[in-house]
């Protein structure tokens, strides 16, 4: 025990001693390099967790949201451009990204305690989970949708009548955002009683 304390003391002595033999330039440059390496590693870790493979590595995510996504326009369409989980669920903005990752630890908790580890449990839970997502998208004005769908680039004359009517009024005026009207765009909706009147059996 004493040995360890002595070792720590020695280590601290070396670290706290001013660097007499090293130039300030060297210190600045090596500090910069270390920063780059650290930052890069962090980024790489982030990048890895942003892949579809990572998100669907849990059966909860693979068997439910991912299966359902596959029949939708964001998985297969005429133009061949597709959205993956992190396009809609992780903000590309750096600060938002960290905030979202902190929240993700809740999911690891859920995994350990099996909150949605069967289809039934998922069905029972999904309104709550969906509501979390709607609240988030409502609060950020559907940021993730807008990363791909730019309002300014929408040509109303090429949209269907119903789409153009809604986009040029409620959306243009900022009264509503994408997620107000496009719920269930990527997954199946649960019983929506209390969310959208008259759309679900009681």
């Amino acid at each position: 025990m004493n040995k360890i304390i002595n070792l720590l003391k020695l280590g601290w002595a070396i670290l706290s001693k001013p660097a007499v033999h090293l130039s300030l330039g060297f210190l600045t440059i090596s500090g910069f390099i270390a920063g780059v390496i650290f930052w890069g590693g962090f980024n790489t870790a982030m990048e890895l967790t942003n892949t579809e493979e990572f998100c669907t590595s849990c059966h909860e995510m693979r068997d439910n949201p991912f299966m359902e996504l596959q029949t939708t326009i964001h998985y297969s369409n005429r133009s061949g451009v597709r959205a993956i989980c992190s396009d809609c669920h992780v903000p590309h903005n750096w600060t938002d990204k960290i905030a979202r990752k902190m929240q993700a630890s809740k999911e690891v908790w859920g995994k350990i305690f099996g909150t949605i580890d069967t289809r039934e449990k998922f069905e029972n839970h999904r309104l709550q989970l969906a509501q979390n997502e709607w609240t988030r998208l409502k609060a950020n004005d559907s940021l993730e949708c807008r990363n791909c769908h730019q309002f300014d680039s929408m040509d109303f004359t090429r949209q269907s009548k119903r789409a153009a009517a809604q986009h040029s009024s409620a959306l243009a005026k900022g009264e509503k955002t994408c997620i107000d009207c496009h719920k269930g765009i990527a997954h199946k909706l649960p019983n929506m009683e209390g969310v959208r009147e008259g759309t679900s059996p009681h």
Binding site: K188, P190, M192, T199, S200, P201
Partner: peptide, 8 residues
């Protein structure tokens, strides 16, 4: 979607 949960 038009199933037992939701009627679009």
């Amino acid at each position: 979607q038009l199933d037992k949960n939701f009627n679009k």
